[in-house]
């Protein structure tokens, strides 16, 4: 006999349940697909200069603390104020393959990870639609997403900062204190993703507790 308990959990019949995140994810995926199509068209039929890829110069922003700006970088400074730079754009006019690879490493892993996160969120929302919000599958996917963001952001930040430092050392003939700057840049990039990952892992625990409560309620007449 099919169970028809009064408090049978809502199996995702409410389309608004996953909004506004569902709409945002859909928009990002569509925008990413359109952007990828445009890039592919330009790659096939024309020249493309994208983040060090293509025939143009290879540039990347490098976070270097303690740089003193020489000259009037900020015009019309009030008396008694100073300007210091945090990030500088380093460019190689005729980059080598190694420099192009380093510039690519500063942004490709991040883009790949963000796309993967968006896809995982889309899958998560699909599971919420089919199985309902309080299902073990939802808790498992949230937990996986949390660990993915945690590990992915560490890897991305590390590769990004190391690539930036390595690229800076190929551009700057002088001594570049790359390691300390890489660490500071990495920490700056990591803080928000780490908090998000902790939030996702906590949310997975909350959903798991909700699944147990839902199971109990499912047998209530």
């Amino acid at each position: 006999m099919q169970l028809d308990i009064d408090t049978t959990p809502n199996r995702g019949t409410d389309r608004k349940l996953t909004q506004p995140l569902g709409g945002a994810v859909r928009f990002i995926l569509i925008a990413a697909a359109v952007l990828l199509g445009i890039v592919l068209i330009f790659a096939v039929f024309g020249t493309i200069q994208l983040g060090g890829l293509g025939s143009g110069p290879a540039c990347t922003g490098v976070r270097l603390t303690g740089i003193t700006i020489a000259g009037p970088a900020v015009a019309h400074l009030q008396p008694g104020t100073t300007a210091t730079g945090g990030t500088v754009a380093l460019c190689a006019s005729r980059p080598t393959a190694g420099q192009r690879a380093l510039v690519g490493l500063t942004w490709i892993p991040a883009v790949a990870m963000y796309l993967a996160v968006v896809l995982l969120v889309a899958q998560l929302l699909q599971v919420v639609h089919t199985a309902g919000p309080f299902a073990m599958a939802v808790a498992r996917r949230l937990r996986f997403l949390g660990w993915f963001v945690l590990a992915g952001s560490v890897i991305v930040a590390a590769s990004q900062s190391v690539a930036q430092s390595a690229f800076a050392s190929t551009v700057d003939a002088g001594p570049v204190p790359a390691v300390s700057h890489a660490v500071s840049a990495g920490l700056a990039v990591l803080l928000v993703p780490l908090l998000i990952a902790c939030g996702l892992l906590t949310l997975a625990r909350v959903i798991r507790a909700g699944v147990q409560m839902s199971d109990d309620l499912a047998g209530t007449v």
């Binding site: 006999m1 099919q2 169970l3 028809d4 308990i5 009064d6 109990d216 499912a218 047998g219 209530t220 007449v221």
Partner: peptide, 19 residues
């Protein structure tokens, strides 16, 4: 005002709780 299905579940001892 309880469905027959739910009363059957109660009758057969398969309900976990009763309000």
């Amino acid at each position: 005002g309880v469905t027959i299905v739910n009363l059957s579940i109660l009758k057969n001892g398969r309900a976990k709780a009763i309000r």
